[in-house]
């Protein structure tokens, strides 16, 4: 999966969209999982809403989990729904477990690891 999780300029998520049935997928896939037709790469929207979420309250087993050097802390994880009609699994940073809500607007980016989401402020600027 060469480059499947790597960033394009602007750190937007790189997915793909089927030219026939308009289905968008992430990570990019040369074939549409719905109709098997050809798909073209596309940069996905950087903003969306929380579709569902949970809190990882215990440290997952290592390996494969690599805990931070200063130790495990519970983190929020969820699926972020983008306007393209895809829901992306992401770690939600800077959101306290007691504050996270379904429908909450977030921005989503990717870097070296899995996609990460942050609270979007009303102006759409990352907090």
């Amino acid at each position: 999966m060469e480059g499947a999780l790597t960033a394009v300029p602007g750190r937007a998520l790189r997915g793909s969209r089927c030219s026939r049935c308009e289905v968008a997928v992430y990570p990019a896939d040369p074939a549409c999982p719905s109709c098997s037709g050809p798909s073209a790469p596309v940069s996905l929207s950087a903003t969306g809403t929380v579709w569902t979420w949970t809190v990882q309250r215990y440290a997952p087993k290592s390996p494969p989990y690599a805990a931070p050097e200063d130790g495990f802390r519970p983190f929020v994880v969820g699926y972020v729904e983008l306007p393209e009609g895809v829901r992306i699994l992401a770690v939600l940073h800077g959101v306290r477990p007691e504050d996270v809500r379904i429908g909450m607007p977030v921005t989503i980016t990717t870097g070296d690891g899995v996609p990460s989401a942050r609270l979007a402020d009303p102006a759409g600027v990352t907090t």
Partner: peptide, 20 residues
């Protein structure tokens, strides 16, 4: 990365499915 960042956890999925 899905493993090293702690997302390969079955209980997480079931929690997110029932949450929605």
């Amino acid at each position: 990365a899905y493993g090293s960042e702690g997302l390969m956890v079955t209980t997480q999925f079931f929690a997110m499915k029932i949450q929605r």
